[in-house]
């Protein structure tokens, strides 16, 4: 239902807002396009466009930065983090959503903290501890570090999903003779699939994009794509600028695919609460 006078463009304020949005898009397009154009250019200095065009930088970037292994590591880390965080997070989210017990609020706060703290603050002590026990510098350390914000994140996104499932369903299943395990597998799991998918994809996007924690715990053989990209950029001068651009484009295309997939499963504007937008 639409209120009168609330059209998309209506007032000077409206124009101002859409102007700001437009400016944001121009900046964004400029940022993206300049990287993409550069990654396909031969030499580009003090002109509007590069002198010539080539796709060769992608091959060079692939070889120079050993992108094959890096992508494999990225994939391994992402899959392990998503799987483990779901395994640990979903049962906890279920219990938190359904039960009240002494210390519940304290536990909720505990699960919120890793999301509220900047990764660097706990990343440095965490990396120190992981080094002490010999995890850091390997894939296992990277996975463990990335799980720290991911598990709470799964709990946070899954709790509202579970809360909106009618508890009567579980009681009904129990009256039909189902055990707790059966209820989980036969009743809840199918209903939770959309929520689990949403959480999994969000964790995946976060993990692939997570710079700080991976940066602090990765060794030479356990770098993910973002970290490799950072190193290639901060050591610029050794490599051609364009091959860094090519690598950045590869990274962004990968994230873009993930985001498009994510948006198919999650309505981004309805993560917090949902109200039926009813027709009259």
């Amino acid at each position: 239902m639409e209120l009168r006078g609330r059209r998309i463009v209506a007032s000077p304020a409206g124009w101002l807002i859409w102007g700001a949005v437009l400016f944001f898009f121009v900046m964004l397009a400029g940022v993206i396009a300049s990287v993409v154009v550069s990654s396909f250019g031969t030499r580009w200095f003090d002109t509007w466009l590069p002198q010539g065009w080539t796709a060769g930088w992608y091959g060079r970037a692939w070889d120079d930065f050993t992108l094959g292994p890096v992508l494999v590591v990225t994939l391994e880390v992402a899959v392990l983090v998503v799987g483990l965080s779901l395994l640990i997070g979903v049962p906890a989210a279920y219990t938190l959503a359904r039960r009240s017990f002494p210390g519940r609020r304290l536990l909720q706060l505990l699960f919120l903290l890793p999301i509220l703290m900047p990764p660097i603050t706990y990343g440095i002590p965490l990396a120190t501890v992981l080094y002490k026990y010999g995890f850091a510098g390997h894939l296992s350390g990277v996975v463990l570090a990335n799980l720290v914000p991911s598990v709470p994140f799964v709990i946070l996104t899954m709790t509202p999903f579970i809360e909106q499932i009618d508890p009567q369903l579980e009681r009904a299943a129990r009256m039909c003779g189902a055990t707790t395990r059966q209820i989980f597998l036969r009743v809840l799991a199918p209903l939770l699939v959309p929520g689990i998918l949403a959480a999994a994809i969000l964790v995946l996007v976060r993990t692939v994009g997570m710079f700080e924690l991976t940066f602090l715990t990765a060794g030479p053989d356990s770098q993910t794509l973002v970290v490799a990209l950072y190193y290639s950029m901060s050591s610029a001068g050794i490599r051609a600028q364009q091959s860094v651009d090519a690598m950045a484009v590869i990274y962004t295309s990968m994230m873009l695919v993930l985001l498009v997939v994510a948006l198919r499963f999650v309505n981004p504007t309805q993560l917090v609460a949902r109200v039926r937008d009813e027709d009259p």
């Binding site: 990287v35 973002v226 651009d245 950045a248 990274y251």
Partner: peptide, 16 residues
């Protein structure tokens, strides 16, 4: 821009 990540944004800002 969520997909861009800080690193591509940085590279793009430097270029643009």
């Amino acid at each position: 821009p969520i997909t861009l990540g800080t690193v591509l944004t940085a590279q793009g800002l430097l270029n643009f």
